[in-house]
Design a protein around this nucleic acid. Structure first.
Lengths: 190, 190
DNA sequence: GATTCATTTCATTTTGAATTGAAAAATCAC
DNA sequence: GTGATTTTTCAATTCAAAATGAAATGAATC
């Protein structure tokens, strides 16, 4: 993975947060010059890893993580700047996240730019994986196993017995996995 | 899971992703010149995809699939030949599979070569993923979330409130995931 | 010990998904 | 409409992971 990930003290593209000047933060301990930026970076990193784990480009996760940790909606430009990614990556990533219903675009009144904010349920992020990666693949594998079962006929009787048992085992496991997925989905929901 | 490979059509050195060897329809009678080889190829392909899905090199799956569909143990050379992979890949893949307890090596009497056969439970293959990919990563993310929670103190009160809520949400989800994993493990076992 | 074959190691190469970036297209203000 | 700005598209590039293959190592036999 090129960049993103591994939250660290950064190479600084995070930079400024508008408004806020510097006047008000009376709470107890003051930490970084810009604690919010640090948190945003951290979240971007965490979600980048998650995306990667689920087989998605980590940039998807970075963008979502940034939005997740940002109170007000951000424009694509701001995202590009803060994450130090290209416009292409941002554009495609945002499109995908909107499709997944993990991020919401909004265009305020006479505004020219579209701004994006994260939906706060994490489910879309995971469901996306289950529905778009796991399910289709399991389905395809099951079909292929069925094909193999049919191909058994061409074998010698002894091989046929052995292989029938083994293919059956694999098929059974697939079925089992296919039954658990919806269960997991339900669990995520509740 | 690192990559999402989405089965390729061309340049397919590893386990034949598509069944269709050359003549694949005679539903009842003997079809291919070597039906066993076809089934082995098919299994290699299926497990290659599974390995890929779980974030492992697909060669791991190819090897396991081949062994799974082979009645008698195979030597490394035979594996190299049948899957058309390099000795290096075979050596490392076998080592890993043995570590995972998914494959068993054996050296018969005065034999010179080590032969390998697949354990028929599929669990090791999946547990490996859960234990080596998911669990460690979730653990790391949880730690990082805890760090972020601590960093909240540097924020303005309003941001602090918003972010505390959001980080809490992410943390809650992590905890939830952490609880489900063992449950899934148990399910796989039963 | 010397020989032969099996296996591991690891520097190099390949591969392919992710990313870039600049040009094209779309969108909006006026 | 024109001009200015935002967004999308996509060929080219990048880069990390996977695979290669040959040399080094190990193991068994005589």
């Amino acid at each position: 993975m090129p960049q993103a990930s591994t939250a660290k003290a950064s190479t600084a593209p995070l930079g400024q947060r508008k408004a806020n000047g510097s006047s008000d933060h009376p709470p107890s301990a003051a930490a970084s010059p810009d604690a919010l930026a640090d948190i945003q970076k951290g979240m971007a990193g965490i979600f980048a890893d998650l995306a990667d784990l689920l087989g998605n480009p980590s940039s998807l996760g970075s963008i979502y993580g940034l939005l997740f940790a940002t109170p007000e909606p951000l424009s694509m430009d701001e995202i590009v700047e803060r994450l130090d990614i290209s416009t292409g990556t941002a554009s495609q990533g945002l499109r995908r996240l909107v499709e997944l219903d993990a991020v919401v675009p909004s265009k305020g009144d006479g505004e020219r730019v579209t701004r994006y904010s994260a939906k706060l349920e994490l489910r879309p992020f995971v469901s996306m994986f289950l529905n778009q990666q796991l399910l289709p693949r399991l389905g395809k594998s099951s079909d292929r196993l069925a094909d193999l079962e049919r191909a058994l006929e061409g074998l010698s009787p002894s091989d046929q017995e052995i292989l029938r048992f083994r293919i059956g085992r694999a098929a059974k496991w697939h079925r089992r996995a296919g039954m658990f997925l919806p269960l997991i989905q339900k669990f995520l929901r509740g």
